[in-house]
C-alpha cells in the first residue's frame, strides 16, 4: 500500500480542476479524457486538432515535471490478461457511459449533472468492490 499524501493530493487535484476550468473558459469544452482520446481520431474533422493538442499537453506536462522533480513512481502489478480485458472494458465502458472519471467524475459532477453523479457512484462502487475482492482473493 502507498502512504497517505494529503497535501500533494489536494494540490494535484486543484491543478486538475484548474485545467478543466481553462478548457471551459477558452474552448467551452468539457475536459473528458476518454472523449478526447477517441475523439482525436473518430470525431468530425474540425474537432480533432484541439483534442490532439490537449493529449500532447497531457503527455508532455508530466515529462516537463519529471525534468525538475525526477521520474514519478510507476508501479503496475496487474497481470497481462487483466490489463488487456480491463483496458478494453474501460475503453468500451467509458464510451458507452459517455464519460470517465474526468468527464463525469470531475466536470459532470461540477455541472451538477444527475447522470454524472450516478456514473461516479458506479465507478467508485464497482472499482472498490473489484479491487478489494481481488486483494482478498489472494492476488496481493
Amino acid at each position: 500500500m502507498t502512504e497517505f499524501t494529503p497535501m500533494t493530493a489536494l494540490a494535484g487535484g486543484a491543478l486538475i480542476g484548474l485545467a478543466a476550468v481553462m478548457l471551459m473558459g477558452a474552448l467551452g469544452r468539457i475536459a473528458g479524457i476518454c472523449g478526447m482520446f477517441s475523439g482525436a481520431i473518430f470525431a468530425e474533422h474540425g474537432d480533432r486538432l484541439w483534442r490532439a493538442a490537449f493529449l500532447a499537453g497531457l503527455i508532455g506536462g508530466p515529462l516537463l515535471y519529471a525534468v525538475f522533480a525526477g521520474r514519478p513512481d510507476f508501479e503496475m502489478t496487474a497481470s497481462w490478461p487483466a490489463i488487456v480485458f480491463g483496458g478494453a472494458a474501460i475503453g468500451f465502458g467509458a464510451r458507452l457511459a459517455a464519460g470517465c472519471t474526468s468527464g463525469h467524475g470531475v466536470c459532470g459532477v461540477s455541472r451538477l449533472s444527475p447522470r454524472s453523479f450516478a456514473a461516479l457512484g458506479v465507478f467508485l462502487g464497482v472499482g472498490m468492490g473489484v479491487a478489494t475482492l481481488l486483494r482478498l482473493a489472494g492476488a496481493g
Binding site: T2, T5, T8, A9, A11, G12, G13, A14, L15, I16, G17, L18, A19, A20, M22, L23, A26, L27, A31, I33, W50, R51, A53, F54, L55, A56, G57, L58, I59, G60, G61, P62, L64, Y65, A66, P72, D73, F74, E75, M76, T77, A78, S102
Partner: peptide
C-alpha cells in the same frame, strides 16, 4: 490553450501521484 490545459491536467495528476497505478 488546449495544449496548456492538457499540460496542467497532466502535471496535476503527476503531483497527486495518480499516474501511479499502485496509488
Amino acid at each position: 490553450s488546449a495544449a496548456m490545459a492538457g499540460a496542467v491536467f497532466g502535471i496535476g495528476l503527476t503531483v497527486a501521484q495518480l499516474t501511479n497505478p499502485a496509488k
